[in-house]
Write a protein that binds this DNA or RNA. Sequence first.
DNA 1: CGGTATCCCATTTGATACTG
DNA 2: CAGTATCAAATGGGATACCG
Lengths: 163, 163
Amino acid sequence: MKKSSVGEFDCSIAKTVSTIGDTWSLLILRNAFHGMRRFEDFQKHLCIATNILTDRLKRLTKAEILYRVKDQDDARRVQYRLTEKGFALYPVLVALKDWGDKWEGNYDQPRMVLRVRETGELIPPVAVRTSDGRALHPQEVTPTLGEGADELTKELVEFRVKD
Amino acid sequence: MKKSSVGEFDCSIAKTVSTIGDTWSLLILRNAFHGMRRFEDFQKHLCIATNILTDRLKRLTKAEILYRVKDQDDARRVQYRLTEKGFALYPVLVALKDWGDKWEGNYDQPRMVLRVRETGELIPPVAVRTSDGRALHPQEVTPTLGEGADELTKELVEFRVKD
DNA sequence: CGGTATCCCATTTGATACTG
DNA sequence: CAGTATCAAATGGGATACCG
């Protein structure tokens, strides 16, 4: 299978990964969530080659995760900002950060802590929860077929092992 | 920068992405969360070349996301199972699925729906929440420096734009 | 069954130079 | 400033054959 055809898998994870699942795109998004908006700033902070940055910004813009807007202060400049679809990636980014902090960090002290802006309250790790807020272990969750399920999805759902 | 050195960024997202952030690894993990455990099953379901699959299983095993165990039923067989560290990736996978379902799906009907195994209750989308369960928009969240913050983290946190 | 070993091709990368 | 153009090198992919 070609890499480019992975997104054609009828699977949300495959599609999502083929859209944003490369190192540079994720790092650009991370910075975007920190308020970074300008080509120059991405380039400097990430030490990314300009052609690669151009490519990724184009892809993210085409995917409607970022949109371009002229900088009011400086007509020569362009800003790349998150769309609603882009903002919706926040749980993905935070889940990645949470996992890395816990399992891949080499540090006793955390480098960055997320808080509620208004109150300063600490934000607990992202989890899969019931609607009343209880965190669930993966084995407490079961996938069920939706109306639109295709063959591969069926295979996968039926695969489920019981222990 | 070489791809292999991205993980050396002092950033949990970069580290995490360099560990699991490629298409095949994510798809293998997706299947593992569905209970898939055998080389052969991964190979058949994903149509992945055996050398690539070997490589990814090794990497995931080395990262202690999967571990190998002999199949009790068939001595020739090996099983790859999720470790605790592997199970901890569940929020990442579900967040990816949720986002893809909402923003990248071409279907009116969902293909797969997650439910609480015991009760059948629907599981709401993964979100960044306060400790009392309120979902937060990214702009309601602010990053603060932890004790272990390095220069790049500081740059990033200070970048935050106010509108 | 669960891999290894090889080979080859396509893609991606990053450095560098250049431009409207 | 925000790209584009070029290009050599590295990487990653899949097919195939083979093995304990």
